[in-house]
């Protein structure tokens, strides 16, 4: 799950640096696209805590993402903008509470049933926003974007600077989320999640209340999805029911699959690749989804560990890795 070798750590740092440099040479359009990709990466990364780390597959994850975006809307439908230091904690809190409720009920089931129950809860949230007027209904609604301000101080931004600032906020949050999850998975708590993924029945026999641990992971994942959803609101200044729909949840799962189930950075790779792929597909053809689907299918078939399983050719690295090892994760 976590990068072990020095080489992979350097590669990750280099990747982060590359992302940090992007606004210096990319056009405003691509900065906006980059922000979108970073937000998608946060959503996929938050879901990886459940899917890759704990072995829980949820189809309702977008509910926590979307609720955070709607929370920003409820706080500032229009008029005076609020500080990100107000909107972010409240949005994350709202997502966490919803995750606690959904998780408490759905984690009583497992596997396929869990998939269906989370899907049902996600769709319930979807229809609340779709069929009632509380969030602007089907059409969605504009909101006043949160600003970067603390007490009387506010970061002054021109219209041109704003998207770049949003990009960097998203990047900082993504890196922070990644480092937080590294810390979490290395902790005693993370080891329990790993045990649950490998053999939940045995964990229960060892004396773990696996339900409580799974619920804790579910709530944390929901809150992290809230960070992503809040960022969406800050980025687009607009919410609509699609944000909470199951398509969004499925897309995040696809990104994880594309990037790799077995690593923490896989979902980030997957989200960036998926967003880039969508862009290229749109340029080349009118059938964007078809191209996306074909590429994802190809990657999953050709690279069982996803994009994060890609390695430099052996001639370049010289150090041949033995194939077919059983998930070599050094402990201790």
């Amino acid at each position: 799950m976590l990068p072990q070798s020095l080489g992979s750590k350097i590669a990750l740092a280099a990747g982060a640096l590359l992302l940090a440099l992007l606004p210096l040479f990319a056009s405003p359009y691509y900065v906006e696209l980059g922000s979108y990709a970073l937000i998608a990466a946060m959503l996929a990364l938050s879901l990886q805590l459940l899917v890759g780390a704990t072995g829980i597959v949820s189809l309702g994850h977008a509910a926590f993402y979307g609720l955070a975006a709607y929370t920003v809307y409820f706080l500032t439908p229009d008029g005076a903008p609020r500080s990100i230091f107000v909107t972010l904690p409240l949005a994350v809190l709202a997502s966490g509470l919803l995750a606690l409720l959904v998780g408490a009920l759905s984690l009583r089931t497992r596997g396929f049933f869990l998939l269906m129950v989370t899907l049902a809860f996600g769709q319930m949230v979807f229809f609340v926003f779709h069929d009632t007027k509380i969030g602007g209904g089907t059409d969605g609604a504009f909101l006043t974007r949160p600003i970067i301000a603390l007490f009387d101080w506010q970061l002054p931004l021109t219209r041109r600077q704003r998207p770049i600032a949003v990009y960097y906020v998203a990047l900082v949050l993504l890196v922070a989320m990644y480092l937080f999850l590294v810390m979490l998975l290395r902790s005693l708590f993370g080891r329990v999640l790993e045990g649950i993924r490998v053999n939940e029945h045995r964990m229960a026999a060892l004396g773990y209340s696996t339900y409580r641990y799974k619920l804790a992971a579910f709530v944390v994942a929901g809150m992290l999805a809230g960070v992503a959803g809040h960022m969406w609101a800050m980025h687009r200044g607009f919410v609509n029911p699609e944000l909470v729909g199951w398509h969004r949840s499925a897309e995040a799962l696809l990104m994880i699959l594309l990037g790799g189930l077995g690593t923490l950075h896989g979902p980030i790779l997957g989200a960036l690749a998926f967003t880039g792929l969508g862009e290229i597909a749109q340029l080349l053809t009118e059938r964007k989804l078809l191209v996306e689907g074909a590429v994802v299918l190809f990657v999953v078939l050709a690279l069982p560990q996803g994009l994060s399983g890609l390695r430099l050719p052996r001639i370049l690295t010289r150090k041949a890795e033995p194939a077919g090892r059983l998930e070599p994760e050094p402990h201790g």
Binding site: M183, L184, R186, S187, L188, F189, G190, R191, V192, E194, G195, V198, M203, L206, G207, Y208, L326, E327, E329, P330, H331, G332
Partner: peptide, 25 residues
């Protein structure tokens, strides 16, 4: 898929009282 030591360490952790769960394992 886990090392033998980790198999047993998980068993010990299950009954450890007052362990700080966020501490690096």
């Amino acid at each position: 898929t886990l090392p033998a030591l980790e198999n047993v360490r998980l068993a010990a952790q299950a009954v450890a009282r007052g362990a700080n769960l966020l501490r690096p394992a």
